[in-house]
Design a binder for these strands. Structure first.
Lengths: 153, 153
DNA sequence: AATTAATACTTGATTCTTTCAGTAATGTTT
DNA sequence: AAACATTACTGAAAGAATCAAGTATTAATT
């Protein structure tokens, strides 16, 4: 659905508004797609992302602050999110040896197995989502989004 | 930050995954920007959106189902979301005269005033967000996002 | 006309998430 | 050592998402 139709406006919207609203609506749809996949595994997109981040550490543990920085949603409560993953057995926490304020977080074997299974499904979904775009268009989208992200708050 | 860096992966990711992750990260940043603006007014992005939709109706009331469709959200939530706006005095609900199952929802004078103030701020933010892009790039972004949205679930 | 089905919305219960303020422990700086 | 900063945890409260069941009204079927 066209954004103008959603906001039922007759006057034409500023281009920047169109772009932002498009972004929000599209991502909403994508999010709900991904959520549907993760649901049977009882993890949220956030949790899935944390697992991916931890896997990316390749053995090396991450501290809470590191995970938080890399997380998609900075506002969420990282402590409790991680604790949920710990409870599920996908993640382990240990006090950092050299700085006892910090905690080392790493993904467990179980977490890795789950991630490997889920990743396949997510990848399929991502392909389906992006399918309407040609390779060039996809690359262009990535480039444009990257440019937007570079704004200083 | 590049997506590869976030996921700390050395192998190159599939293009579709890059695109989707970029989308999620970017939109999150945008969302948090917009949220910061709305916060002092004590309304969420969702609520702001509903107000915009209702304003778009230009006097004509919308039913819950209509609002819900444009929101892309769950019905039971919509009821409560609207009720919150009613409580704040920004929206009014009335039973539809010709079909008593339906309710007519319209934005109040107060809601309109709020919207006019907030809209200006949001518009400024949107401009700032999109500023890194040229006009052509912005149009291209809109086009690409529109293509993605067209996927059938 | 009476029964059944569909529509439009509401409510309750549950769980998850976010936010905020405060606590505590450890490090760093002066 | 004292004061300050950093890192993480906790409790309480409010918000939002989700699911299922419930009410009221209208439309369709028999």
């Amino acid at each position: 659905m066209k954004i103008e139709k959603i906001l039922k406006t007759s006057i034409s919207l500023p281009l920047s508004k169109k772009a932002v609203v498009n972004l929000l609506y599209t991502t909403n749809q994508v999010n709900s797609n991904l959520n549907d996949i993760l649901k049977p595994f009882d993890i949220s997109i956030q949790q899935f992302n944390v697992l991916r981040i931890l896997r990316g550490q390749k053995g090396k543990p991450a501290t809470l602050a590191i995970v938080q920085e890399l997380m998609i949603n900075k506002m969420s409560n990282t402590t409790r999110l991680i604790d949920k993953l710990v409870k599920k057995g996908f993640v382990e926490k240990n006090i950092n040896a050299t700085n006892k304020r910090k905690i080392d977080i790493h993904i467990t074997h179980e977490g890795l197995s789950l991630l490997n299974i889920v990743d396949l499904l997510i990848e399929k979904a991502e392909e389906k989502i992006i399918k309407p775009l040609t390779k060039n268009e996809t690359q262009e989208l990535i480039r444009l989004l990257g440019k937007i992200r570079l704004i200083a708050d």
